[in-house]
Design a protein around this nucleic acid. Structure first.
Lengths: 116, 116
DNA sequence: AATAATGGTTACAAATTGGTAACTATATAA
DNA sequence: TTATATAGTTACCAATTTGTAACCATTATT
């Protein structure tokens, strides 16, 4: 990997994490991928994420071209978020992250609690 | 994935990112994996990472059981860091993160610069 | 004329993270 | 006796991130 760092002038893993590592980004990307695609719907699914956070995370995902934002000229406003191709291409990455997390964090956490 | 979130009480992707997402953690894990395993050596490889940061990141990796810290009773002090099995098991995760980062961030960044 | 619905924006405060530089310990070598 | 090497720790300050709550625009409905 050192060759990659030299070749490209940076660590590819850190570069990816910088883009997808926002506090709510994985969850937002996931929900959009299953067609929870409106601002208000996303908020209902993630009550811990404030309106302000939701907007900034979505704007960053948009400027990194992982999601597309489509505004309809209606009142009350209607906005729909969809994954771009670049966003879709994260699937295998998320699959690995998810597999590892279930096995090494969530499952152990569960069996801990079952002990008592 | 919503089933996983409900089943395990949390998002497995976010859980993993919380552990490996520290500013210097991917790089530290990588260098340890190729036997750059002493504190001072790691510092030389990562001049942008302050001593203080290096210690806190290493301590967190240790408490998350991704690295093992072995202290030798010598003067001057000698400490060697190695990957645990849990740390090793991140390889496929990092492979995907790296592949995606090269293709979608580093390569585009390079060809941009070549244009002029 | 007031209210609801949607998707925000803005100002301010609080919390978290990170940088800098000085300090520590101790055996060995000069 | 003083300097060197290694692996830190600590205090203090600056920067970044995040939360809270109030505000906005517009059309349709009551």
């Amino acid at each position: 990997m050192v060759e990659n760092i030299k070749k490209y002038g940076g660590c590819p893993v850190s570069a990816t994490l910088k883009i997808i590592g926002g506090k709510w980004k994985p969850l937002i990307l996931y929900f959009i991928s299953v067609d929870v695609n409106r601002f208000g719907q996303l908020q209902k699914m993630m009550p811990g994420c404030s309106k302000r956070m939701m907007t900034t995370q979505l704007r960053e995902l948009e400027s990194d071209e992982l999601v597309h934002r489509e505004v309809f000229a209606e009142v009350p406003p209607k906005v729909i978020y969809t994954l771009t191709e670049k966003g879709e291409s994260l699937r295998p990455v998320f699959r690995e992250l998810s597999k590892w997390g279930i096995k090494n964090i969530l499952e152990p956490r569960m069996s801990e609690n079952q002990q008592r």
